[in-house]
Each structure stands twice: as structure tokens, then as C-alpha cells.
């Protein structure tokens, strides 16, 4: 077999020092991305640092009302947590709409943030792919690009969607990611964490070499808010979103006081739709308002040969979600 070094870390510091700044090293949590891609020979780490023994499995409410989630909290545990279900329904729903029970039982919070794209041209090991082999081109742009390719945030170098549902909810909620690395600890705003492909699609996130995600801290819940996640796809389960929306609203009577909207399945990163939110704030709830906001959210979208339907579908995901939440 292709050999690699395996080390099990007992502390965050040990994990970081074992990993070092080695760009051929990888942290192993649930393994649902890493092991999958190692088996199909797309990721070839020389050093694997197993972090499953670290004490990062807790969920705690901070004094300022924020909720701090350990990197190793599984998707199942997070979705079923009472506080999350009560104060962040959008996050619980997003988690439960993803993957399968078996995968959610293994997959972790930090691992979900770090998951790789589903683009078949990335995964086949043969086609040109700027993520896998920078400079080789993007086979998806003129290829088959129906289900796991984006219409927002694409570049001429990469059009793969970020596949996560959880991250879309977190983008709407607002969060910070805490990392620990060779240079110590720092915090990254969730919306700055994932990078647009631009002309460096091989760079997917803002981590420096060797940095390890230790926590994701959710912004305090909006008081009196309602939230929900709506995921649209072909079959009813076990499929990545064709389009999805995470919406949080607070109302005063029929007036929208606060609105947060994020999109999945259509963007190259978890997509916060700030302009759509502005179009909602202070408005009376009405189908026309929702539709206008949805149009604004998808403004500037670039359709490709097989995924143009994601533009109206993304709009529908927003309108229906808002309609249900404000009913």
C-alpha cells in the first residue's frame, strides 16, 4: 500500500507540533473526506495526525451568549443538541439534511468546514483540474456541470460548489473559527474562512500551514428570531444540494426587522447574501418583497451549460423559506 506516517495526538499542542508546517501532512478527525480521497488516490498525505483523542468534543454557552462548538463534535451530536435545536434551528436542520446517518455519526464540525468539493473532474484523477493540479485548467466549465457546480463566485479556473449544508447555516448565523498553529492561536471570521477560487482554486481556505481548527463559535442567537434551512435536490435524501437557503428573520408584526440569508449548492463557498438581506430589512412581508430579495441574491450569477436552472431554483429556495418562516 502507499505508506504514510500515522501519529495520534494527545494534546492540541502535540498535534500542531507533529504536523508542523509540513504541507504533506493532514489532520484526521472523522475521516469522511480524508480517507475517502486517500482511497481514490486524490489526497496523498505523508503524515497523518489523528486528533480524535483531543478534548474538543464539547458544546458550551459562553457568558456573552455565544455558543462554542468543539472541533470534534459530530454532526449528529450538534444537530441533536438542545440549545442548537432551540436557538439555531437553521443549523440543526442543515446538519440533518446532509449526507446519511452513518456519515453524520462520524463527521465532525471542523471536518465539515474542511470538506473538499464533489466535482467529478476533481475526483477522477485524470481530467484537468486547477484544484488538483494548478494550471492544468478546469474540465468542468465546458464539461458536465449540472449538479455540483456553482453559478455564484465562479472563476474561469474553477466552478465547483462548496458541498456543505452546515456551513451555509453558519454563514447565516455568523461565527468565528478558532485555530491553533505553529504561530499560536488566532480567530478567523467564518465568512473569511473559505476562499473564492479566483485564479488560485487550489487555495480553499484561510488556514496557514499547520493550523488546526479547535472551535467554531456561533454568534449569539438573534432574539425572537425564527430560522430554517431549505434544501432542494433531486431525491429526498443523500444528495448534495442543487440549491439551498439558510434564513433567519425577526419580525415586528408584519415588518421584517432583521434578516439573514445564505445560500448553498449555488456558490463556490457558503454564500451570504447581504444585498438580499438589505432588501428585506424594514419591509412588510409579501411575496413581492421575497421575490425581489431572491432576485438580488442571485444577481450576477453565471449559468453554465447544465446548471442554469440553479438560478431560479436558488431564488425559489429563498422565497419558500421566507414564506414558511413568516407565515
Amino acid at each position: 500500500m502507499r505508506e504514510f506516517n500515522y501519529a495520534r495526538a494527545d494534546s492540541t499542542r502535540q498535534a500542531v507540533s507533529t504536523h508542523g508546517r509540513n504541507d504533506q501532512a493532514a489532520y484526521l478527525a472523522g475521516g469522511t473526506t480524508l480517507l475517502d480521497l486517500v482511497k481514490i488516490d486524490i489526497m496523498r498525505p505523508e503524515q497523518v495526525v489523528d486528533i480524535n483523542r483531543l478534548d474538543l468534543g464539547g458544546i458550551e454557552t459562553l457568558d456573552d451568549g455565544r455558543v462554542r462548538i468543539g472541533a470534534l463534535v459530530t454532526n449528529t451530536a450538534l444537530a441533536r443538541d438542545e440549545r442548537i435545536q432551540r436557538d439555531y434551528a437553521v443549523l440543526s436542520e442543515a446538519l440533518l439534511s446532509g449526507a446519511t446517518t452513518q456519515l453524520r455519526n462520524k463527521a465532525t464540525t471542523a471536518g465539515n468546514v474542511m470538506q473538499r468539493v464533489r466535482c467529478p473532474y476533481f475526483r477522477d484523477g485524470v481530467s484537468s483540474c486547477n484544484k488538483r493540479e494548478p494550471g492544468s485548467g478546469c474540465a468542468a466549465i465546458e464539461g458536465h456541470n449540472r449538479s455540483v457546480h456553482a453559478v455564484l463566485g465562479t472563476s474561469e479556473h474553477c466552478i465547483a460548489t462548496h458541498p456543505s449544508d452546515m456551513c451555509v447555516a453558519m454563514a447565516a448565523i455568523g461565527a468565528t473559527i478558532t485555530v491553533e498553529g505553529p504561530d499560536g492561536r488566532r480567530e478567523i471570521d467564518f465568512l473569511d474562512f473559505h476562499l473564492l477560487p479566483n485564479d488560485t482554486p487550489e487555495r480553499e481556505h484561510n488556514l496557514k500551514p499547520g493550523e488546526l481548527i479547535t472551535h467554531v463559535t456561533l454568534a449569539a442567537p438573534l432574539e425572537n428570531s425564527r430560522s430554517g434551512y431549505l434544501k432542494l435536490r433531486d431525491r429526498a435524501s443523500y444528495q448534495f444540494a442543487l440549491a439551498s437557503s439558510a434564513v433567519i428573520v425577526t419580525l415586528d408584526g408584519d415588518t421584517i426587522v432583521e434578516a439573514r440569508v445564505a445560500l448553498g449548492g449555488v456558490g463556490t463557498k457558503p454564500w451570504r447574501a447581504f444585498d438580499a438581506e438589505k432588501a428585506l430589512k424594514g419591509q412588510q412581508i409579501s411575496e413581492a418583497t421575497f421575490k425581489r430579495a431572491a432576485e438580488i441574491a442571485l444577481q450576477g450569477a453565471t449559468p453554465y451549460a447544465h446548471n442554469a436552472f440553479k438560478i431560479p431554483l436558488g431564488q425559489q429556495a429563498i422565497v419558500r423559506n421566507l414564506t414558511t418562516l413568516t407565515a
Binding site: R118, Y121, Q239
Partner: peptide, 22 residues
């Protein structure tokens, strides 16, 4: 892929068959 006749969705995730929920 119409350009080179290679199958694109050659796995259980992207070749969509009905699941229990369907």
C-alpha cells in the same frame, strides 16, 4: 462527457437512485 466519452457520475453519490425517503 460529450467531449471524450468518459462517464462522469460513476459513484453512488452522484448516480442518483431512489432512497428510502423517495
Amino acid at each position: 462527457d460529450a467531449r471524450n466519452a468518459r462517464p462522469v457520475n460513476n459513484n453512488y453519490a452522484e448516480y442518483v437512485v431512489p432512497v428510502h425517503a423517495d
